[in-house]
Design a protein around this nucleic acid. Structure first.
Lengths: 258, 258
DNA sequence: ACCTGAACACCGTTCAAGT
DNA sequence: ACCTGAACACCGTTCAAGT
């Protein structure tokens, strides 16, 4: 007893931040199924039970981790990384995305969100949860402001925000599923095609459209094709939204598209 | 031993079908977290281990369940419920969705998929998995054929199929999250607003756009608002897709939208 | 062929007890 | 205040053994 100095008041080996960071590391490398409270504790040299002093539940920890990585999304025109300013001034001139730049700004944020989700796919695998962390709110506020400046009404801006987010999440989901099939347990795409030969035969004769789509894919790498498809889908969606928000301006689009 | 007659060869108390049906029942009533192999076995009056004679793993069982309910989606113009015909004839006249009816047909299928997912939200919570069950392929083939008849090229049809699916899944995800917040542990929306008063205060001053969106919602019931938002988003998306598939035809849209 | 019973190696979470 | 150790009530999966 005498040898050991009294433990300082602030010698907590743990902190909520350290736990979240450790969890993100495990999630990134081992996936959402590799994450357990014991696993986190091990990586921190600590007991599982001790985590519950800093965090109420595993679900809460996952929410914290999700919002943490949401902060990685770059929001164009902001110098700060996620801490945010002090409220700043009003929505004065030269605001967040005035004029015709709104489309580029929204597109950039959407691509940023997509990149973040590709780095941290477990955010999607977490399942449906109300996303109301500070970083998520910050990104949503930025996008809503851009849409507002672009002439979107409140209802249409809400619909646009959701629709764009859906497109991002869906694109990443599809890409992860596709990667999982090709580099799955069998290893290569050829392996998979051999294993599923019988099933594919049935598919080919009963569902020819799908079969054609499945066999047409192997050309080019997945990342590139996925990004192109996402860009196309996003452009289509933005065309439709723009037409609702500002019919006159949208008309000129069709000459370009054509 | 003598009293009991020899067990007939076909007295299996279990079958893959019965297991899947039981699993769906539990998933619908108790959610994906309420499902366990032991729980399924209990509901069938059987031991957990016995399930593994009919099913390789819990994940495989979930895939079977997901494709089963995918079969509930009504595909317009088909009399059969999911068994399918014998290959039928070619893509002759009066096909699957010729002319300008393609939009109505696609919209109907999308609404059908949405309704199915609202009945079985666990399909979404299952996480990203390659969806290649027979019923999923059947629906995909139908939609691809409709888009093909409508003049969509293969690439655009693929993008459209994905984009529409993303919109459906995203809309249901958002609706479930919203329902979870309002009828969560606190019970009513008022309870939640009181509990989160401090947080909301911070949100209001730093993220006014989001705050306005959060407090504007309570009017009207969730189901109605959600359906309207989904319809709007789907229409926007289809506008954009249509413009890419058939620019001339799409031009006339803007007079209607306006 | 099909199911039981018991085990293995895990989980998330709780909580007295220590320091 | 903060962490340990042990326990509780679960998991998915396996597999000899029964019938």
């Amino acid at each position: 007893v005498w040898l050991r100095p009294e433990r300082p008041v602030r010698d907590r080996r743990l902190s909520r931040d350290a736990i979240v960071t450790a969890a993100i590391g495990i999630l990134d490398t081992e996936g959402i199924r590799g994450l357990s409270m014991r696993r986190i504790a091990d990586s921190l040299g600590v007991t599982a039970g001790s985590l519950y002093w800093h965090v109420a539940t595993k679900d809460e920890l996952l929410e914290l981790a999700a919002d943490q990585v949401t902060g990685e999304i770059e929001l164009p025109g902001s110098a700060s990384g996620g801490a945010g300013g002090t409220g700043a001034g009003g929505t004065g001139a030269g605001g967040t995305g005035a004029g015709r730049g709104w489309r580029a700004a929204i597109t950039a944020i959407a691509h940023g969100q997509r990149a973040m989700l590709l780095r941290h796919p477990w955010v999607i695998q977490m399942g449906a949860h109300p996303n109301v962390g500070p970083n998520a709110l910050r990104a949503a506020d930025r996008m809503l402001r851009i849409l507002d400046d672009a002439g979107f009404g409140p209802d249409l801006a809400t619909a646009a925000l959701n629709a764009i987010g859906n497109q991002v999440v869906g694109a990443v989901t599809a890409e992860m599923a596709w990667r999982q099939v090709t580099s799955g347990p069998a290893g290569t795409l050829a392996d998979w095609q051999r294993d599923a030969a019988g099933y594919l035969e049935m598919v080919r004769e009963r569902y020819p459209m799908v079969a054609a789509r499945l066999t047409a894919a192997p050309t080019g790498d997945i990342g590139k094709v996925s990004k192109e498809r996402f860009s196309l889908a996003l452009d289509c969606l933005l065309d439709g939204l723009q037409a609702r928000a500002n019919p006159q301006q949208a008309l000129s689009l069709f000459r370009v598209v054509r």
